[in-house]
């Protein structure tokens, strides 16, 4: 009854269940945080705007992104993945989401930033619908916890418009 094996087993089971409970509680504690991040994005310049040989429109732009995501960080936050996506509708597609820029933020100190950049991923349409197209720039963030449930949210900045002519 009180052999070494039984004691080891009981200890292991107890230790593992305590660990599991702590992980669950850390994940639940994230719900107590009500973040209020802010972000501003400006399209500073359309670098070029043309039709590819295969018929798809492509645009390159310079962006100025500033954001304060510090309130997303809790003690259970491992990293915040933040990205800026262009979102628009075309006759063919009910939704187009194209990531233009992203970053991995691993500490609260880095979570307040501003950056001046051209789009990191290519902004290519499926087809030729981008002339004069109105689009939203949406800042998305995905919070990865040290353990437990991941969560995400976004901030939509509407009212951006592409030029009427290729350049």
């Amino acid at each position: 009854m009180h052999s070494f094996g039984y004691r080891a087993n009981a200890l292991l089971t107890f230790g593992l269940s305590i660990l599991a409970l702590m992980c669950a509680m850390a994940s639940i504690s994230d719900n107590l945080n009500h973040p209020s991040p802010t972000a501003q994005v400006q399209v500073l310049n359309i670098n070029w705007f043309q039709k590819q040989p295969n018929g798809n429109d492509e645009v390159s732009m310079t962006l100025n992104i500033s954001a304060d995501l510090q309130s997303l960080f809790t003690w259970n936050t491992k990293q915040v993945f933040v990205f800026l996506a262009a979102e628009y509708e075309t006759p063919k597609n009910s939704l187009n989401q194209i990531s233009l820029w992203d970053a991995i933020i691993t500490s609260k100190e880095q979570a307040k930033f501003w950056i001046h950049t051209s789009n990191k991923y290519r902004f290519i349409d499926q087809g030729s619908n981008l002339k004069g197209k109105e689009f939203n720039l949406t800042m998305h963030w995905h919070v990865m916890p040290k353990t437990g449930k991941m969560f995400a949210n976004k901030l939509i900045m509407s009212g951006h418009r592409l030029p009427e002519k290729f350049r």
């Binding site: 597609n93 009910s94 939704l95 187009n96 989401q97 992203d102 499926q126």
Partner: peptide, 16 residues
């Protein structure tokens, strides 16, 4: 991996 681009069809709802 993470999704970076989505194109969802108007008529069929299929996604790329």
């Amino acid at each position: 991996h993470r999704v970076i681009k989505v194109h969802e069809r108007q008529d069929t709802g299929e996604v790329d």
